[in-house]
């Protein structure tokens, strides 16, 4: 059956993952190593989830503060709540009985965006890498977030200061609680610096800090780059999407809002009538 010698043999490359085959099947792994650690022999019995996830993203084991920080980030954003647009997307998939993957893909697609989504995390971590804790640079960026947007892209220009909520009045309690908790774990990092200057920024741009602002600073403290942080943010928000999609499917479509009656059409040719079909009573 084997025909792998008859054509060229393209190889994949990785600095993350090594697998050694079972002696009787080259397509089955006997042992798997993640950055040198044996996954099923060592990591599975000895590591916590946040330790393993940190290893996957960073390539090294976290110290206890880093593991704790990742764990608390994961808890803070595991469920953004059912009013969040990404969760609503998942619920709209779930209520119609779409596939499980469709519910999560719906949440990912919506939650990838620039308003409260993963792209905002990307932009903010990139800015942390660029500006660190330089107050003037951050004030400049938040006042004019599109300065580096020098040509059309699949992503649009920002319509608000990234990391802040343009439709907010004051910083909501859960965001303050998350900021406080994460800053306690990492008292000398970006997250603590953000806590220190939050009100100053809010006065400058006239609206409050958002969860993306908090999480991006914590992910920067974890040592993630912009793309890693964007990915991890997407993953970590999926539990809420999953359970709310499942719940709405179970509750059924009759209990789920439908906005047909609430849709006001401003360009309407009016009714042109419904045709009849000869010979059928429809």
């Amino acid at each position: 059956m084997s025909n792998s010698t008859k054509v060229n043999k393209p190889n994949y490359q990785s600095s993350i993952w090594l697998e050694e085959p079972e002696s009787n099947n080259p397509f089955t792994a006997k042992s798997s190593y993640c950055y040198g650690y044996n996954v099923y022999q060592d990591i599975l019995p000895k590591a916590s989830l946040s330790e393993y996830w940190y290893l996957l993203f960073v390539g090294e084991r976290p110290n206890s503060a880093q593991a704790q920080l990742l764990e608390k980030i994961a808890i803070a954003i595991a469920n953004p709540g059912m009013r969040d647009e990404s969760i609503r997307a998942a619920m709209n998939a779930g209520v119609g009985g779409s596939t499980a993957a469709a519910s999560l893909i719906a949440a990912l697609g919506v939650g990838a965006g620039q308003y409260g989504g993963a792209r905002e995390i990307f932009t903010l971590v990139q800015q942390w890498q660029k500006s660190g804790c330089k107050l003037t640079e951050w004030e400049n960026f938040l006042s004019k977030p599109n300065q580096d947007y020098d040509r059309v892209d699949i992503w649009s220009e920002y319509e608000h200061a990234p990391g802040f909520e343009p439709n907010g009045e004051t910083c909501p309690t859960p965001i303050l609680q998350t900021l406080e908790q994460l800053a306690t774990i990492c008292p000398n990092g970006a997250i603590a610096w953000l806590k220190q200057h939050r009100e100053q920024f809010e006065q400058l741009i006239q609206y409050p800090l958002s969860m993306t602002g908090v999480i991006a600073s914590a992910m920067f403290d974890l040592g993630l780059n912009a793309k890693q942080a964007e990915m991890l943010f997407l993953i970590l928000r999926l539990p809420g999407a999953a359970v709310h999609a499942l719940e709405q499917e179970q509750l059924g479509w009759k209990k789920f809002p439908f906005f047909g009656q609430n849709t006001i059409l401003t360009d309407d040719p009016g009714s042109l009538g419904l045709p009849t079909v000869k010979g059928f009573d429809l």
Binding site: S15, E20, P26, A29
Partner: peptide, 8 residues
């Protein structure tokens, strides 16, 4: 398994 070149 051996068609992934590990560089880590």
């Amino acid at each position: 398994c051996d068609r992934v070149t590990y560089t880590g």
